[in-house]
């Protein structure tokens, strides 16, 4: 019971983006995942990618306010990583050689399905922002991602006043929305 409570504490820290706690989770679980990947036709770089993706899956799960994993944190990360790696190997026509699991696994297909959908959406957003070009990209990132105030943005980007900056931001935002939604709707029709 005690350890379960501890893990909920970890997950709450993860959801809040607490660096110390995230570092702790990383340190405690990375080597296990690395040996899984490396023993199954992967490189150390693959291991890093897969583990970080599993961490993102976990992060997305706890961000929705659900701190119940129904299993140990370790088992969860292992199951997600294995699932992700199997998919990756399958895409590259490589073989998964290990028959015996180091850890018990739990079904995580649902989470991974959601994760892939979100990943595709983020990829869409990322591409749309890239296609905006400068200065729109920096302007919108400053306002929407870094949450800067309009006055500070005006100063940093050299606009005479915050109204000018707002005007520019509006134009950029309209372009971004257009780019994003055209792709998003296309993606949804066959997704």
């Amino acid at each position: 019971m005690n350890s379960e409570l501890q893990e909920v504490g970890l997950l709450k820290g993860l959801a809040a983006g607490d660096r110390k706690i995230i570092e702790g989770i990383y340190k405690d679980h990375f080597n296990m995942i690395q040996s899984l990947i490396v023993n199954n036709n992967g490189t150390a770089d693959d291991a890093r990618d897969i583990f970080q993706e599993a961490m993102v899956v976990l992060y997305e799960k706890v961000r929705t306010g659900s701190f119940e994993l129904n299993c140990q944190l370790k088992t969860y990360l292992y199951s997600v990583s294995k699932r992700l790696w199997l998919k990756r190997l399958h895409q590259n026509n490589r073989l998964f050689t290990q028959e015996v699991d180091l850890e018990t696994t739990v079904p995580v297909d649902e989470e991974i399905g959601q994760h892939e959908k979100r990943d595709a959406e983020f990829e869409l957003m990322s591409q749309a922002i890239q296609r905006l070009g400068e200065p729109c990209k920096s302007l919108l990132e400053a306002y929407y991602l870094r949450k800067m105030k309009m006055q500070d943005i005006a100063l940093q980007f050299g606009y005479t006043n915050s109204d000018n900056a707002k005007n520019q931001k509006y134009k950029c935002l309209m372009r971004l929305k257009k780019l994003f939604f055209s792709e998003y709707k296309n993606g949804n029709t066959h997704g």
Partner: peptide
Amino acid sequence: QMNRFGEWK
């Protein structure tokens, strides 16, 4: 979407 994208990044 923007917010979650920012958090994700």
